[in-house]
Amino acid sequence: MRVEYINPFVEAAFNVLKEVLNTEVKRGELYLKSTSQPVMGVAALVGLAGNVEGRVLFDMSFDTALAVASDMNGEKLEKLDDLAKATITELANMITAQAVTKLHELGFTFDLTPPAIFTGENMEVTDSEVEALIVPMVLPQGKIEINVAVRERL
């Protein structure tokens, strides 16, 4: 997978997280996975379809999701209820919108699906036909991994 697909998502995640959480964000080392990989507990998935296709996953632990949603709402949320999920969805929406604007400027055209939120223990994601690039973002609330598996349409 070409690195140029993931960079806009990483930049957008960095900007949006910093702005909505008003905190320091540290970018971890990029790594590549071509086999099945574990998902941490809460994952927001956005699909892309156009002259590039694939999916972006915003992956975090349950505790991180709750801490992030709590901070975005300005109140302590006790469980991952509808409001907390709507908050993580909106976070994924904002990051994706910013990244897509950049990708469109670079000449890639595609449509997006609305984010879907997956929650659960021991989940794995497998992208059998395209490898995934992952960039961890480290926040005081925990780690969010930006996991992008996108390719040019064949």
Binding site: D82, L83, T89, E90
Partner: peptide, 11 residues
Amino acid sequence: DSMFVTKQISQ
């Protein structure tokens, strides 16, 4: 359509 945004604007 987002419960989060509605709450944020309302607050």
